[in-house]
Nucleic acid binder design. Sequence first.
DNA 1: GCAAAAGTGTTGAGTGTACACCCATGC
DNA 2: GCATGGGTGTACACTCAACACTTTTGC
Lengths: 212, 212
Amino acid sequence: MGEKIINLSVDCAIFGYEDGKLKSLLIKRDKEPALNQWSLPGSYVYLEETIDEAAKRILFELTGIKEVYLTQVKVFGELDRYPDRRIVSILYCALIKPELFELMAGSHAKEVNWFETDQIGELPFDHNKMINKSLSWLKEEIWRKPILHNLLPEKFPLNQLQELYQTILQEEIDNRNFRKKVINMGLVEKLQEKTKGGQQRPAFFYRLRNTV
Amino acid sequence: MGEKIINLSVDCAIFGYEDGKLKSLLIKRDKEPALNQWSLPGSYVYLEETIDEAAKRILFELTGIKEVYLTQVKVFGELDRYPDRRIVSILYCALIKPELFELMAGSHAKEVNWFETDQIGELPFDHNKMINKSLSWLKEEIWRKPILHNLLPEKFPLNQLQELYQTILQEEIDNRNFRKKVINMGLVEKLQEKTKGGQQRPAFFYRLRNTV
DNA sequence: GCAAAAGTGTTGAGTGTACACCCATGC
DNA sequence: GCATGGGTGTACACTCAACACTTTTGC
């Protein structure tokens, strides 16, 4: 597969939204250091791939997830962040819907799994810092579009979208104001179709608007 | 000085504001590739320094500038960005006042100098991309405080501050609205002292407020 | 008819923007 | 006294936050 840049890695903080909860994707490491500990999926960058490609490849190799919108968030370059060797690591982030992706532990991952983000304890290296940085990144980024694409089905009722925002932002949002806002800013558009089979009043479907 | 990480570098985009113009700091390279071309100051990260330290050191070694507030902006990791070897480079930025710093070409810089930013032609590697990314970073960051500290003297008249903003943002700003805004948001506070020796009505001095 | 979720409007506060004239000084 | 840059206030539009009730369906 080519030569590694042994002092440069990529770590991926992947968040999943499911059942109204925000989850993080972790892998169980199958080698030292931190053998058997759960950590963010990450690995070396190869000489013959861009860092964006590296992020995609690493995420796929370790977890089976592909075709998500990964964004570079920050570089972590402290001296002691990795015990064996000096490694500078570039943090990439994405937000997806777990149901849409099948997990497959690969390369140096023994297992892959989703964990409720606020239940996560101490992670090895500086991965807790990475999660925190990613969460604040999420809060800023959630009002832009691309990040929502791997998260939502084609069409969805507005109240589900609101729950998502509440989970990410960790705060209650006024229902009327939220609807006005997302419609006004052109984030979503209303469809004619309605939900069926609920126990209550059906809701109109909405979808993300294509433009901008 | 220790061992270099030969695939990882830092480049610094330093902007200077002087005479109402935005300038960029470039060095004339004294080795291949791009020998004798003007480029952003940049170099390798050492194994025993954090990336923030590397940025400070590199800026100082090449240009003589120190004690500025450098911020990590983005990582550039394309395959062909550097001809000799695969190098991933972390872009750091700062905004300073040229008069306050003495330039001293050091290590692999033959010369150091300021160039008007909008007169800069083609730079080697991906340094034009870096300048562009830095400029958009500047436009966002200019409303926060830390970035202004190396830029302004202890006290300054408000209209000078406005010119600065206009230069960075590349747009006219309404004088009354600007004053209201910077005072209201607590960015500056008025002093009793006034300018002297101008040809016209003296202006009150202002200073950056210490409190966040 | 009742339980459950969907949906809807108005008001006040604060913020951003547009706009034109008088003021204080040096010469 | 005039040229020069310093300094100020008001009105409108927009955005945000707060707030409670009616509607539609399944059972």
